[in-house]
Amino acid sequence: MDDDRALSRARQADSLIIVDQLTKKFNAVTAVNGISFEVHEGELFGFLGPNGAGKTTTINMLTGLARPDSGAIRIAGMECTRNPKAAQHLLGVIPDESNLYPELSGFDNLCFCASLYGMQKKERRMRAGELLKDFGLEEAAHRKFAAYSKGMKRKLTIAAGIIHSPRILFMDEPTTGIDVGSARHIRQLIAELHRAGTTIFLTTHYIEEAERLCERIAFIVRGRVVQVDTIANLLQPIQQREAMVVSVSNAESDLCSRLAAEFPHLEFQAVSLEHIRVESSEAIHIAPLLRFIENQGAEVTEARRTRLSLEEVFVGVTGIELDAMKKEKEKSGGGS
């Protein structure tokens, strides 16, 4: 117990960002409602929630683009609630949309962003060259930003956010709306930045992305943080459970309820007309299950075990259905 307390104190001393009871309202809408959390030095912290949950508003308040109505923000020990400029030299921000200057080339955009942080000409030219090389944009260095593809724009926006080697990096939906290859490259870059010691605050609505990259995660829903914990702790309750998806054809609409009656120790969910999800805290024996389905006149086309992931934890904690999240992904253009 004493060890736990000591560890907690040590972690608090180690906190680079401390957010306490932060609230932001836009007229009658409460976008962020009394949220509190801490981000530790060198940590990759995920801020996970559906569209409109308050992720971007939170980032805007932490970086000085929005004023909180109440609550407190401390970054690297500095009071930033009333004086957001205090810590801006430590921050790098990668917004959800590429917002560089369309009329400038990639190289000039990076040099300009570096100059905003007071970097000398020689230093910023060298750093811009390095980043363009690292991000595979060397050939497009002197092309206008307006002529870049969506994935290239995203990469250059990330490069602009880290040109001054910030201690804390805010990334708002970095892989939303870009192609699979670019999204993968960006995830590798995030992991490299983390390994290099940058504290990263990552917002995303891609659960797998958060699970793959982050050390700790906060779930935010309708402006409230509903849970904050390490990935290991979040996954712990579902680790003992088994799950599988059975694909069927010619099934009656009440097949799930008949299965539930026959196998009371298993949980069944009709994902669609052709897919049934089976979950249990006990071992799932496939053969009797398949025999019963076929005896009901349906044909089993596939049965595969699936790994229970953070998605299930998210659904359990927030009550938000996976379908709703998936629709959001499709709307925003995928990329994960």
Partner: peptide, 14 residues
């Protein structure tokens, strides 16, 4: 309008 002004607001200058 194109949000590039946000870059300036995020810069550590008054």
């Amino acid at each position: 309008k194109n949000r590039s002004f946000e870059r300036l607001l995020l810069a550590p200058i008054p």
